[in-house]
Simulated assay, not measured.
Amino acid sequence: MRHLFAAVLLTILSVLSLPAAAQQAGRLISADPIADTPAGMQAWRAQYWTTSQSGAPLAVTGIVAAPREAIPPHPRRVIAWTHGAWGVAEKCAPSLSPNFFTATAALDAIREGYVVVAPDYPGLGSATMHPFLVGVDTANSVLDAVRAARAIPGAAAGSSFAVWGESQGGHAALWTATTARSYAPDLTLVGTAAAAPPTELAANLRDGSDKNARALLLSFALHSWSTLYGFSMDGIANKSNQGIITRLAQNNCVSLDKKPKIGTILGILTIVRATKNKDIAKIEPFGSFTRANSVDAARVPGPLLIAQSRNDTIVAPAVTRKFAKAVCKRGTRLRWIDMTGDHGASARESSAETISWIGQRFAGASAPNDCAKL
């Protein structure tokens, strides 16, 4: 019995001593091949380590996709795809969705020989609250996904990458560019593309013309931030409506191919009324938090591509254009793509031009500059 106890104790101690090395940011935990992928593509469901802004280790998930062909003599070019809003509940992870391959615009680049690294972000597919529109936490998970992909032999991913995102992912892409050099000096960022990116968060949550979408996204943000940081919603909604906000966030994933349930519709209408005259920029601590997690045009390096539809009802075109002008004022080279489709088609509508632009960045070509048009 004494020997058995000693053996059990030794096992426990060995497990407890493992995390310091095993939880290193960017370390791959597992990569499980996906059997059913589009023609010419191979993919893996990956789990890897990242860190929160506070330095806490987090095990997170995503998908890595690559051409289904022989490993090339040189590492493949990498695109980090940063997805738009799918929700804030664990079940809303893109990697868990049967629609992942059809919904991910960056996968068009596989035929050009790219590896596409598609992180879920913390809390989507992993057991923690998702930091919705929280810049540093999201950017860390993107950069660590690129690192982790390099440990998958069949992917043959290199250390040079572009980041491309849509909607919430546009915000993630811009934050990834902002922090890449300091957080991941072992990686080389060649360019950043953002389709319909939220940049000034309070304005984005206030100025989109689709009031129902605004209410749902605000519910995601309020639930995420109040859960993670203990922010009280008392200045925004009464206790009953706070419960509705929580249920909307916990029970709903964004789905473009399904009509919302009647309970979701009624909940959204209630929050529309409850927040009609509320500006979170003027309500603390939300005001300070939205400013801290907005994108600072002065800190985003070039070259940069922004695609924005003038008919976008969720990310107000005027807010994006204001950000683009601020970027140009800093002397950053900017490719501006003006579109006319709806918000959900932003990345698809600009896909061909974006992939071509990314290819030119990898080739070392001089970046175009459309600042004079703005």
Rank of each mutant, 00 (worst) to 15 (best):
G302S: 12
P153E: 08
T275H: 12
P368C: 10
S17C: 06
P197H: 03
S54L: 05
A202P: 02
A292V: 05
A93W: 01
L205S: 11
I283D: 12
C328E: 04
K325C: 05
F231P: 11
P197E: 02
T179Y: 15
I283H: 08
S255G: 03
G158D: 06
E284L: 10
C328M: 04
A345R: 11
S255E: 07
Q242V: 09
A237P: 13
G267C: 03
P303V: 10
K329N: 12
S141A: 15
R273E: 12
I79L: 04
A156D: 12
Q47V: 08
R247W: 01
R27G: 11
I314S: 04
A156P: 07
A352E: 09
S209R: 13
A46Y: 00
F231C: 13
V15I: 14
T61N: 09
V315M: 07
Y183L: 15
A365P: 00
G125C: 07
A172P: 09
G84Q: 03
W225G: 14
E353V: 00
R321L: 14
P197R: 01
R330P: 02
S182M: 13
G331Y: 05
E166A: 06
T128D: 11
A46H: 00
I268F: 04
A372D: 08
W86S: 09
V327P: 03
S232T: 15
P285W: 10
S232A: 15
N140S: 15
A109T: 08
N241S: 08
G169M: 02
A39Q: 11
L96N: 09
N311Y: 03
G123C: 09
L269N: 15
K282D: 15
V190L: 02
H130R: 11
E112S: 14
S219L: 07
G113T: 08
D234L: 09
Q53W: 04
Y229V: 00
S17M: 07
V146C: 11
R206W: 05
L216S: 01
E112T: 08
L266E: 12
T61A: 11
P38N: 10
E349P: 01
N140G: 09
S288A: 13
A103V: 01
L189N: 05
A145Q: 07
I236S: 15
P67M: 09
I306Q: 01
A307Y: 00
G84T: 04
S356W: 03
A118N: 07
S288T: 13
A43C: 10
A155C: 10
T290I: 07
T340L: 09
S294Y: 03
Y183Q: 15
S240P: 00
S351P: 00
E284C: 08
A215L: 01
D257L: 12
